[in-house]
Design a protein around this nucleic acid. Structure first.
Length: 399
RNA sequence: GGUGAGAUAGUCAAGUGGCCAACGACGGCGGACUGUAAAUCCGCUCCCUACGGGUUCAGAGGUUCGACUCCUCUUCUCACCA
């Protein structure tokens, strides 16, 4: 039981510092029922959560299974500075109102994964504000500039003469101080957070609170392309707010290889269960597509509901396996006879008539399931289902 | 502040007077094959009711029959020096 818990906790992690302590905490839980705290900080600058952000949540959820109380920390104070990690320039700061809004949307999402009874939502302004100028000074005496500049991203910026604000030096200190105040046993974060996470250990020692937190770092989740990190700007993400149909479809579109990665980092299935799936695929008794569908169902269910996930699967089968028209498609109207290329542009199926013509030439355009060959085709009055490629549909009414 | 290099389509990157709407790579889109997977193969990839027209190569002027290519100024980026 203890071994299994350890394996699940280590699952997918990139690096663990002071693993022995985690083992001790778990042992104390299994032997004596003693709980412990796991801290994870979230910067309320990103209101649009995607699956990449949920890797940490999934890990927290695992910890909760094995006796952890989660300290879900929203860095409302620190967000005013902006985390310098991995940044090549000073971040612009957020207004108090924006931070509040973002924090709210965080709370709505996280309890889809976490057990509320074992989760404490905290805002660090609560203890950082009372620190005052003298408390802040004390904090800064625990560290020095030379060590701060050892940090890779600071070092690069310093050497290339890009300005580093003093407040950015303060950021890791404050994050570390959170661990002092909360007396966290373990802190988890992404690999890019290593410096900040270690600061927690440093400060817990400096403030002599009698423990030093273990640190568990999770890797950055790859996006749909399987290569680059999942991010909104690369448009390779699955948003937690995506519609069920989109979410299901996106999960199903990842490669088989990436699917296992997603299983490891996102699924609530145990390692043994996943191992069984892998064996099934290897010996041919399980079709990889089925396994991927299960993952898509699990994820869609998590953020929506079991019903909508099943509906998404049904819809998916309908459109893609049986080549039928989706249930819901956008409708457009035209009040006069219209040229096909123009119609495609009007229905947002093509960005320009030039593109529309190319699509037609390449046989990508269908009207009512019939391939269109004539670029000059005029659509008279009636109702048409327009289709470009495999997934873009629109309904057009011509009066 | 000084000196040198550079700015080309979504990104990287050719092109140094007409053969340039601009090589190539990546990405993206479409097609074939499939499990809407991956891999592979093929096609497309500025706009325009189009065998033609229009607007592009940081910005503004200029030279020229003709400029992405030459000249001037401006803006920005990078390297070295201080």
């Amino acid at each position: 039981m203890l071994q299994e818990a350890l394996r699940e906790i280590q699952r997918g992690s990139a690096e663990i510092i002071d693993n022995e302590r985690i083992e001790k905490l778990l042992k104390a839980y299994f032997d004596e029922g003693k709980t412990y705290t796991v801290k994870a900080g979230f910067d309320p600058t990103a209101p649009d959560l995607h699956l990449g952000h949920t890797v940490l949540l999934q890990k927290l959820s695992t910890f909760q299974k094995y006796g952890a109380k989660v300290q879900f920390l929203i860095g409302d104070f620190t967000a005013q500075i902006g985390d310098p990690s991995g940044k090549s320039a000073t971040r612009k700061t957020l207004s108090a109102l924006e931070i509040q809004e973002n924090a709210k949307s965080y709370k709505e999402q996280v309890f889809k994964l976490l057990d509320p009874s074992k989760t404490e939502v905290l805002f660090n302004s609560e203890w950082i504000n009372p620190l005052g100028a003298s408390g802040m000074l004390t904090l800064t005496t625990t560290f020095n500039v030379a060590r701060m500049l050892e940090r890779d991203d600071f070092d690069k910026r310093h050497k290339s003469g890009i300005s580093i604000s003093i407040s950015e030096f303060i950021y890791p200190l404050l994050q570390g101080y959170d661990s002092v105040h909360l007396k966290s046993d373990i802190e988890i974060g992404g690999t890019d957070q290593k410096f900040n996470l270690l600061m927690g250990r440093h400060l817990q020692r400096a403030y002599e609170i009698g423990k030093e937190q273990s640190v568990l770092m999770m890797p950055i989740l790859e996006g749909l392309d399987g290569v680059q990190k999942m991010s909104k700007s690369l448009n390779n993400y699955i948003g937690v707010a995506d519609e069920p149909n989109d979410m299901f479809g996106k999960v199903l579109s990842v490669s088989d290889e990436l699917m296992w990665r997603y299983y490891e980092l996102l699924s609530a299935k145990t390692l043994d269960e996943i191992e069984a799936l892998k064996n099934g695929v290897t010996d041919g008794s399980l079709h990889p597509k089925k396994v991927k569908e299960d993952l898509a169902l699990e994820i869609t269910t998590r953020f929506h509901s079991h019903e909508s996930a099943k509906a998404a699967k049904a819809e998916f089968d309908k459109v893609h396996s049986n080549n039928q028209v989706p249930t819901e498609i956008d409708e457009y109207r035209s009040d006069a006879e219209i040229w096909i290329a123009k119609a495609l542009v009007d229905c947002n199926l093509s960005p320009s008539t030039s593109q529309a013509r190319r699509d037609i030439k390449q046989g990508a355009v269908k009207i009512n399931q019939e391939k269109v060959n004539d670029e000059q085709l005029q659509l008279g009055s009636g109702e048409y289902i327009l289709q470009v490629g495999k997934r873009k549909f629109a309904k057009l009414k011509v009066d």
